[in-house]
Protein backbone atom coordinates (compact mmCIF):
# COMPACT_ATOMS: atom_id res chain seq x y z
CA UNK A 1 0.00 0.00 0.00
CA UNK A 2 2.69 2.44 0.98
CA UNK A 3 4.73 2.06 -2.14
CA UNK A 4 1.70 2.39 -4.38
CA UNK A 5 1.65 6.18 -4.06
CA UNK A 6 4.67 8.01 -5.23
CA UNK A 7 6.95 9.70 -2.76
CA UNK A 8 6.69 13.26 -4.18
CA UNK A 9 2.94 13.21 -3.71
CA UNK A 10 3.27 11.95 -0.17
CA UNK A 11 5.79 14.67 0.66
CA UNK A 12 3.60 17.37 -0.86
CA UNK A 13 0.56 16.25 1.13
CA UNK A 14 2.43 16.07 4.41
CA UNK A 15 4.09 19.46 3.90
CA UNK A 16 0.72 21.06 3.08
CA UNK A 17 -1.07 19.59 6.08
CA UNK A 18 1.71 20.18 8.56
CA UNK A 19 2.25 23.67 7.18
CA UNK A 20 -1.40 24.54 7.59
CA UNK A 21 -1.66 23.21 11.12
CA UNK A 22 1.64 24.67 12.31
CA UNK A 23 0.96 28.10 10.83
CA UNK A 24 -2.77 28.39 11.56
CA UNK A 25 -3.18 26.33 14.71
CA UNK A 26 0.03 25.90 16.63
CA UNK A 27 1.61 29.32 15.96
CA UNK A 28 -1.54 31.34 16.78
CA UNK A 29 -2.07 29.43 20.00
CA UNK A 30 1.53 29.94 21.08
CA UNK A 31 1.02 33.60 20.24
CA UNK A 32 -1.96 33.75 22.62
CA UNK A 33 0.06 32.08 25.37
CA UNK A 34 2.81 34.61 24.74
CA UNK A 35 0.38 37.54 24.72
CA UNK A 36 -1.11 36.49 28.02
CA UNK A 37 2.18 37.06 29.87
CA UNK A 38 3.07 40.36 28.23
CA UNK A 39 2.21 43.96 28.95
CA UNK A 40 -0.62 45.82 27.31
CA UNK A 41 0.50 48.42 24.81
CA UNK A 42 -1.72 50.85 22.92
CA UNK A 43 0.13 50.87 19.58
CA UNK A 44 1.37 47.30 19.14
CA UNK A 45 -1.22 45.63 21.40
CA UNK A 46 1.50 43.86 23.39
CA UNK A 47 5.00 44.67 24.55
CA UNK A 48 7.61 43.60 27.06
CA UNK A 49 8.21 43.20 29.97
CA UNK A 50 6.82 39.81 30.80
CA UNK A 51 4.29 39.90 33.56
CA UNK A 52 1.52 37.89 35.14
CA UNK A 53 -0.66 40.98 35.54
CA UNK A 54 -3.28 39.66 33.14
CA UNK A 55 -3.79 36.55 35.23
CA UNK A 56 -3.92 38.66 38.39
CA UNK A 57 -6.57 40.81 36.73
CA UNK A 58 -8.69 37.68 36.13
CA UNK A 59 -9.15 37.51 39.89
CA UNK A 60 -10.10 41.16 40.18
CA UNK A 61 -13.49 41.02 42.00
CA UNK A 62 -15.20 42.84 39.14
CA UNK A 63 -14.18 40.27 36.52
CA UNK A 64 -14.29 37.35 38.91
CA UNK A 65 -17.94 38.09 39.42
CA UNK A 66 -18.56 38.13 35.65
CA UNK A 67 -16.68 34.85 35.22
CA UNK A 68 -18.46 33.12 38.05
CA UNK A 69 -21.79 34.33 36.74
CA UNK A 70 -20.88 33.04 33.26
CA UNK A 71 -19.76 29.72 34.71
CA UNK A 72 -22.99 29.55 36.67
CA UNK A 73 -25.12 30.17 33.58
CA UNK A 74 -23.06 27.65 31.59
CA UNK A 75 -23.49 25.09 34.38
CA UNK A 76 -27.25 25.67 34.50
CA UNK A 77 -27.40 25.40 30.70
CA UNK A 78 -25.44 22.13 30.77
CA UNK A 79 -27.60 20.71 33.55
CA UNK A 80 -30.80 21.61 31.76
CA UNK A 81 -29.46 20.11 28.52
CA UNK A 82 -28.49 16.93 30.36
CA UNK A 83 -31.86 16.68 32.13
CA UNK A 84 -33.73 17.14 28.86
CA UNK A 85 -31.25 15.25 26.70
CA UNK A 86 -30.65 12.08 28.74
CA UNK A 87 -34.25 10.80 28.74
CA UNK A 88 -34.63 12.17 25.22
CA UNK A 89 -31.69 10.15 23.86
CA UNK A 90 -32.86 7.10 25.78
CA UNK A 91 -36.38 7.35 24.36
CA UNK A 92 -34.99 8.00 20.91
CA UNK A 93 -32.87 4.84 21.00
CA UNK A 94 -36.00 2.81 21.70
CA UNK A 95 -37.97 4.03 18.70
CA UNK A 96 -38.11 1.82 15.59
CA UNK A 97 -35.01 1.99 13.37
CA UNK A 98 -36.76 3.56 10.38
CA UNK A 99 -38.31 6.31 12.44
CA UNK A 100 -35.02 6.94 14.26
CA UNK A 101 -33.39 8.09 11.01
CA UNK A 102 -36.13 10.65 10.49
CA UNK A 103 -36.04 11.84 14.11
CA UNK A 104 -32.26 12.27 14.05
CA UNK A 105 -32.67 14.22 10.85
CA UNK A 106 -35.22 16.50 12.51
CA UNK A 107 -32.79 16.98 15.37
CA UNK A 108 -29.95 18.19 13.18
CA UNK A 109 -32.04 20.47 10.97
CA UNK A 110 -31.84 23.28 13.56
CA UNK A 111 -28.11 22.62 13.91
CA UNK A 112 -27.72 23.34 10.20
CA UNK A 113 -29.80 26.49 10.48
CA UNK A 114 -28.19 29.83 11.16
CA UNK A 115 -27.81 30.15 14.93
CA UNK A 116 -28.16 33.94 14.94
CA UNK A 117 -31.49 33.65 13.19
CA UNK A 118 -32.68 31.06 15.68
CA UNK A 119 -31.59 33.22 18.60
CA UNK A 120 -33.47 36.10 17.05
CA UNK A 121 -36.58 33.91 16.75
CA UNK A 122 -36.46 33.41 20.52
CA UNK A 123 -36.48 37.15 20.89
CA UNK A 124 -39.80 37.29 19.01
CA UNK A 125 -41.25 34.90 21.55
CA UNK A 126 -39.73 36.24 24.76
CA UNK A 127 -40.13 40.00 24.19
CA UNK A 128 -42.29 41.97 26.60
CA UNK A 129 -45.02 42.35 24.00
CA UNK A 130 -43.96 39.09 22.36
CA UNK A 131 -45.83 35.89 21.69
CA UNK A 132 -45.36 34.16 25.02
CA UNK A 133 -46.59 37.08 27.05
CA UNK A 134 -49.57 37.59 24.71
CA UNK A 135 -50.41 33.91 24.94
CA UNK A 136 -50.19 33.84 28.72
CA UNK A 137 -52.30 36.97 29.02
CA UNK A 138 -55.01 35.71 26.68
CA UNK A 139 -55.11 32.52 28.75
CA UNK A 140 -55.59 34.73 31.78
CA UNK A 141 -52.60 33.25 33.62
CA UNK A 142 -50.96 36.66 33.97
CA UNK A 143 -52.45 40.16 34.04
CA UNK A 144 -49.55 42.14 32.68
CA UNK A 145 -46.47 41.25 30.63
CA UNK A 146 -43.61 39.63 32.51
CA UNK A 147 -40.05 40.77 31.86
CA UNK A 148 -38.48 37.77 30.16
CA UNK A 149 -36.08 39.26 27.65
CA UNK A 150 -32.77 40.60 28.95
CA UNK A 151 -32.73 38.25 31.93
CA UNK A 152 -30.46 35.49 33.01
CA UNK A 153 -33.25 33.06 32.17
CA UNK A 154 -33.43 34.30 28.58
CA UNK A 155 -29.68 33.69 28.12
CA UNK A 156 -29.99 30.17 29.52
CA UNK A 157 -32.99 29.46 27.28
CA UNK A 158 -31.04 30.73 24.28
CA UNK A 159 -28.00 28.62 25.12
CA UNK A 160 -30.07 25.50 25.75
CA UNK A 161 -31.92 26.02 22.51
CA UNK A 162 -28.70 26.31 20.51
CA UNK A 163 -26.73 23.59 22.30
CA UNK A 164 -29.27 20.86 23.05
CA UNK A 165 -28.46 18.79 19.92
CA UNK A 166 -24.80 18.71 20.98
CA UNK A 167 -25.84 17.05 24.23
CA UNK A 168 -28.30 14.66 22.63
CA UNK A 169 -26.14 13.32 19.79
CA UNK A 170 -23.29 11.84 21.88
CA UNK A 171 -25.84 10.51 24.38
CA UNK A 172 -27.82 8.94 21.60
CA UNK A 173 -24.74 7.19 20.26
CA UNK A 174 -23.94 5.61 23.66
CA UNK A 175 -27.54 4.51 24.12
CA UNK A 176 -27.40 3.00 20.64
CA UNK A 177 -24.38 0.94 21.71
CA UNK A 178 -25.98 -0.09 24.99
CA UNK A 179 -26.91 -3.63 24.20
CA UNK A 180 -30.20 -5.01 25.47
CA UNK A 181 -28.52 -8.22 26.61
CA UNK A 182 -26.45 -6.27 29.16
CA UNK A 183 -29.67 -5.04 30.77
CA UNK A 184 -31.18 -8.50 30.60
CA UNK A 185 -28.02 -9.97 32.13
CA UNK A 186 -28.28 -7.43 34.95
CA UNK A 187 -31.93 -8.31 35.62
CA UNK A 188 -31.07 -11.99 35.35
CA UNK A 189 -28.41 -11.57 38.03
CA UNK A 190 -31.04 -10.18 40.37
CA UNK A 191 -30.68 -6.42 39.94
CA UNK A 192 -33.85 -4.36 39.98
CA UNK A 193 -34.54 -1.47 37.67
CA UNK A 194 -32.89 1.08 39.90
CA UNK A 195 -29.77 -1.02 40.55
CA UNK A 196 -29.43 -1.75 36.85
CA UNK A 197 -29.64 1.96 36.13
CA UNK A 198 -26.97 2.83 38.69
CA UNK A 199 -24.59 -0.05 38.06
CA UNK A 200 -24.95 -0.69 34.34
CA UNK A 201 -26.66 2.11 32.44
CA UNK A 202 -24.95 5.06 34.10
CA UNK A 203 -21.36 3.75 33.77
CA UNK A 204 -21.99 2.60 30.21
CA UNK A 205 -23.39 5.98 29.15
CA UNK A 206 -20.92 8.08 31.13
CA UNK A 207 -18.61 8.72 28.14
CA UNK A 208 -21.61 10.10 26.26
CA UNK A 209 -22.56 12.28 29.21
CA UNK A 210 -19.05 13.69 29.45
CA UNK A 211 -18.81 14.19 25.69
CA UNK A 212 -22.12 16.04 25.85
CA UNK A 213 -20.95 18.18 28.77
CA UNK A 214 -17.79 18.97 26.87
CA UNK A 215 -19.73 19.97 23.77
CA UNK A 216 -22.18 22.15 25.74
CA UNK A 217 -20.30 23.64 28.69
CA UNK A 218 -17.48 25.26 26.71
CA UNK A 219 -19.58 26.89 23.97
CA UNK A 220 -21.98 27.98 26.70
CA UNK A 221 -19.18 30.17 28.01
CA UNK A 222 -18.11 31.41 24.59
CA UNK A 223 -21.22 32.15 22.51
CA UNK A 224 -21.11 35.89 23.07
CA UNK A 225 -23.90 36.74 20.66
CA UNK A 226 -26.55 35.04 22.82
CA UNK A 227 -26.32 37.53 25.72
CA UNK A 228 -25.85 40.29 23.16
CA UNK A 229 -29.26 39.48 21.69
CA UNK A 230 -31.16 38.10 24.68
CA UNK A 231 -29.32 39.05 27.85
CA UNK A 232 -28.71 42.74 28.08
CA UNK A 233 -25.56 44.10 29.69
CA UNK A 234 -25.69 42.32 33.02
CA UNK A 235 -25.64 38.72 31.88
CA UNK A 236 -22.27 38.42 30.21
CA UNK A 237 -20.35 35.32 29.26
CA UNK A 238 -16.61 34.78 29.35
CA UNK A 239 -16.86 35.04 25.58
CA UNK A 240 -18.21 38.58 25.86
CA UNK A 241 -15.32 39.56 28.10
CA UNK A 242 -12.75 38.09 25.73
CA UNK A 243 -14.39 39.77 22.76
CA UNK A 244 -14.60 43.15 24.49
CA UNK A 245 -11.03 42.96 25.69
CA UNK A 246 -9.72 42.06 22.25
CA UNK A 247 -11.89 44.13 19.95
CA UNK A 248 -13.00 47.12 22.03
CA UNK A 249 -10.67 47.62 24.99
CA UNK A 250 -7.67 46.34 22.97
CA UNK A 251 -6.36 44.67 26.11
CA UNK A 252 -4.77 41.61 24.52
CA UNK A 253 -2.96 40.17 27.55
CA UNK A 254 -6.17 40.05 29.55
CA UNK A 255 -8.25 38.61 26.71
CA UNK A 256 -5.55 36.02 26.04
CA UNK A 257 -5.38 35.00 29.70
CA UNK A 258 -9.17 34.57 29.81
CA UNK A 259 -9.02 32.45 26.68
CA UNK A 260 -6.31 30.26 28.21
CA UNK A 261 -8.56 29.61 31.18
CA UNK A 262 -11.19 28.34 28.74
CA UNK A 263 -8.61 26.13 27.03
CA UNK A 264 -7.55 24.68 30.37
CA UNK A 265 -11.17 23.91 31.17
CA UNK A 266 -11.41 22.13 27.83
CA UNK A 267 -8.25 20.11 28.53
CA UNK A 268 -9.66 19.05 31.88
CA UNK A 269 -12.96 17.91 30.35
CA UNK A 270 -11.18 16.03 27.57
CA UNK A 271 -9.07 14.23 30.15
CA UNK A 272 -12.16 13.20 32.14
CA UNK A 273 -13.81 11.97 28.96
CA UNK A 274 -10.81 9.78 28.11
CA UNK A 275 -10.77 8.30 31.59
CA UNK A 276 -14.44 7.40 31.42
CA UNK A 277 -13.96 5.68 28.06
CA UNK A 278 -11.01 3.69 29.34
CA UNK A 279 -13.18 2.47 32.15
CA UNK A 280 -15.54 0.67 29.81
CA UNK A 281 -12.68 -0.61 27.72
CA UNK A 282 -12.77 1.76 24.78
CA UNK A 283 -9.73 3.66 23.64
CA UNK A 284 -10.04 7.39 24.02
CA UNK A 285 -9.78 9.42 20.85
Amino acid sequence: MRNLMQQPFRTAVLVLVWGWLLFLVLAPNLLVVGASVMTRSPGTFISLPLTLDAYRQLFDPLYLEVFLHSLYMAAVTTTVCLLIGYPFAWSLSKVGKQRQVLLIFLLIVPFWTNSLVRTYALKLILATNGLLNSALMSLGWIDEPVQMLYTEGAVVIGLVYLLLPFMILPLYSVFEDLREDLLRASHDLGAGRFSTFIHVIVPMTLPGVLAGIMLVLLPAMGLFFVPDILGGSRNLLVGNVIKNQFLDARNWPFGAAASIMLTLAMAFLMFAHRLSKRRIGEDGV
Binding site: V32, L218, M221, G222, G239, I242, K243, G255, L262, T263
Partner: peptide, 10 residues
Protein backbone atom coordinates in the same frame (compact mmCIF):
# COMPACT_ATOMS: atom_id res chain seq x y z
CA UNK B 1 -13.18 20.65 20.42
CA UNK B 2 -11.83 24.12 21.26
CA UNK B 3 -14.35 26.83 21.86
CA UNK B 4 -14.64 28.89 18.69
CA UNK B 5 -13.68 32.03 20.52
CA UNK B 6 -10.28 30.60 21.45
CA UNK B 7 -9.59 29.83 17.80
CA UNK B 8 -10.90 33.24 16.82
CA UNK B 9 -8.59 35.34 18.99
CA UNK B 10 -5.56 33.22 18.19
Amino acid sequence: MSPEIVLAIS
